[in-house]
């Protein structure tokens, strides 16, 4: 057994233990902490699977942002404690059996891969050069399967509107209920002043490097969103009211540009979402830049939650 496989076995064992305890542990807070740890471990697993793009996304969204959301929710639900009536033993047993069956079925399914493993990797590499991109994952996201990526942006907007729709009527158009510090905490303010510039540079770097190396609009956008949230939580800046025009414009800039370039492809490259020869790379970089901003705003507002206070006029 090579050292690498020792690492893999240890990592898998750790992931499974932490994952299982996140489900089984008694208090919700402990479970959420487990989940954050789990997210960190998972991004290592993605590195081991040679999927650095995904590792970046998982570290940023799976561990970081989701963890932040869950921690915030746990903090608030503590004052309104849900009485946790455990499900009865027979039912748990039945559920366990069912889940074991599903897991076993999946295990069997992946244990016997098809004889020549089908892959699109050569086809992607063959068709990537005209786009000028060096990162095959970006190629799939923005060239070959651009429609999915575009629709996914719409999904994000709808989810945001869904979150906003949970506001009380009078608070519509107001500011989100992201919890901020009661007293200004000097340590936190220090962090919120020092980390965001670094984070913003890194976020922009992620977006820019995404064309040729792992990275891209999602990862960059998430970093920017996180920095924004940090500044808000520290009380250095207020969360924007959801009715603000600039906020709405930023939210749609990315999808609108994407859609516009897609429609332009209809005229100049005779297919929707096709890029005219020779212009692919600059167009994609422009789309990614705009999307980074839109994603940052959308993720940040998603994490900030529905508006709770009417906007002061």
């Amino acid at each position: 057994m090579s050292i690498a496989s020792v690492f893999d076995v240890a990592l898998v064992a750790l992931i499974l233990t932490i994952g299982a305890s996140a489900i089984l542990v008694r208090t919700a807070f402990a479970a959420v902490v487990m989940f954050v740890v789990y997210g960190l471990l998972l991004s290592m697993a993605w590195v081991r699977l040679h999927a650095v793009d995904v590792a970046l996304t998982e570290a940023a969204i799976g561990g970081g942002m989701t963890g932040l959301l869950l921690l915030g929710a746990v903090a608030r639900s503590r004052s309104v404690n849900v009485d946790s009536v455990r499900v009865g033993y027979p039912l748990r047993l039945a559920a366990g059996a069912l889940c074991a069956l599903v897991a076993a079925g999946l295990a069997v399914a992946i244990f016997y891969p098809p004889a020549p493993v089908p892959t699109l990797a050569p086809m992607v590499m063959e068709n990537l050069p005209p786009s000028g991109l060096g990162n095959p994952v970006a190629g799939v996201l923005f060239v070959f399967r651009a429609l999915d990526t575009l629709l996914e942006k719409v999904v994000l907007l709808l989810a945001l509107l869904g979150v906003w729709s949970l506001a009380p009527d009078h608070a519509w158009g107001g500011t989100p209920g992201l919890q901020v510090y009661a007293r200004p905490d000097p340590t936190l303010i220090f962090l919120a002043q020092l980390l965001p510039p670094v984070g913003i540079v890194f976020g922009i770097y992620m977006c820019w490097v995404g064309a040729k190396d792992p990275g891209g609009a999602f990862q960059g956008g998430t970093v920017l969103a996180a920095m924004w949230l940090l500044v808000i939580v520290a009380g250095l800046q207020k969360a924007p009211a959801i009715g603000r025009l600039w906020l709405r414009v930023l939210l749609v800039t990315g999808p609108v540009l994407f859609l516009a370039i897609g429609l332009a492809g209809w005229v100049f490259a005779d297919a929707f979402l096709a890029y005219p020869a020779g212009y692919a790379k600059p167009l994609i970089v422009a789309v990614e830049a705009a999307l980074t901003l839109s994603i940052a705003v959308a993720l940040g507002m998603l994490a900030a939650g529905p508006p709770v206070r009417a906007q002061q006029q």
């Binding site: 905490d185 340590t187 936190l188 220090f190 962090l191 020092l194 980390l195």
Partner: peptide, 9 residues
Amino acid sequence: LSGAVVTQL
């Protein structure tokens, strides 16, 4: 940086 701040917090 983050370690120092976190321990402080």
